[in-house]
Simulated scan of single mutants.
Amino acid sequence: MIRVLIADDEAMIRSALAALLRLEDDIDVVAECADGEQAVVMAERLQPDICLLDLDMPGLDGVEVAERLRRTLPATRCVVVTRHARPGVLRRALASGVAGFLPKSRGANEVAEVIRRVAAGGRYVDPEVAADALSDERSPLTDRELDVLRAGRRGETTGQIARSLLLAPGTVRNHISAVLAKLHVATRQQAVLRAEERGWI
């Protein structure tokens, strides 16, 4: 049996998918979680074979959950599902060690097949998302500029960003100025939104 944890903040989707996967002879849904933090706690407790993670969840998103679990549960493999399959997010997901990536528009039988493939050691990326990713624009920002945006994505102050990244506040301000100029936006919030839309952070 393939032991699966499902994490999705939309209760109807989560319960429907769990019910459909439980009809499969070789899949056992061992947990249903409503957010990323709960997914990490339950995964570490139950050690499932596969974590099926919604990308857009409050707190930790699906990729952040996958990054944490890669460190604590290297044998557990993660599949991310998303309603908005932005190409940049795919690159971020693959860099974090996600083994599967597919849009929510796929049927439960297709999800089951992806789970089987990933459980057997394979990887799966939805072909349409992969094609889009190849033609998508690359980030013009440096890794450190992306770090600054990521550290301040929830409205953290310049001082908080500086402390979290072990930088001087003036250095953080310089990075933010460079980001605003490169992305042609007026505020850090606009920069974060644009970077999230393109999957750079």
Rank of each mutant, 00 (worst) to 15 (best):
I176Y: 01
L90H: 04
T82E: 04
I6E: 03
A95I: 03
R71T: 12
E67H: 12
T76P: 06
Q160H: 04
A178M: 03
A186C: 06
I2A: 06
L52I: 13
V40L: 09
A133T: 05
R68M: 12
I115M: 07
V118A: 04
V40R: 06
P127F: 03
F101C: 02
I176V: 15
A19M: 15
Q47N: 12
E197C: 11
G59M: 10
A7S: 11
D56S: 15
R117Y: 02
E24I: 05
G170S: 14
R77G: 02
G36Y: 02
T76I: 05
H175M: 10
I13R: 05
S96Y: 09
S96T: 13
D56G: 11
S15W: 09
V41S: 12
V29R: 04
R163G: 03
A66D: 06
R198L: 15
D132N: 09
L134R: 13
P103Y: 05
Q189W: 00
S164I: 10
G97W: 07
V148L: 05
E113M: 10
A39E: 09
A11M: 14
P48F: 09
R14L: 12
G155Q: 10
D28N: 09
A7N: 13
A18F: 01
A162D: 12
C33F: 06
T72E: 08
R14T: 06
S164V: 11
L23T: 08
A99F: 02
D35L: 10
S105P: 00
S177W: 00
E145M: 06
R154G: 07
Q190G: 13
L46M: 13
A191Y: 02
T187G: 05
C33R: 08
A95W: 03
L193P: 00
D8L: 13
E10K: 05
V118P: 09
I27H: 03
D28G: 01
D136Y: 04
T157N: 07
C33S: 14
A85P: 09
V89H: 12
D25L: 08
L102W: 02
E67M: 13
I13F: 12
A112S: 14
E137Q: 07
E145Q: 15
G152E: 04
Q47A: 15
S15D: 15
S135V: 14
L146V: 10
A186P: 01
A130S: 13
I2S: 06
V65H: 04
A43M: 10
R22K: 14
R92G: 08
L193Y: 00
V81I: 15
L52M: 15
S105R: 10
L165P: 07
S177F: 00
E128K: 12
L193C: 02
M42Q: 11
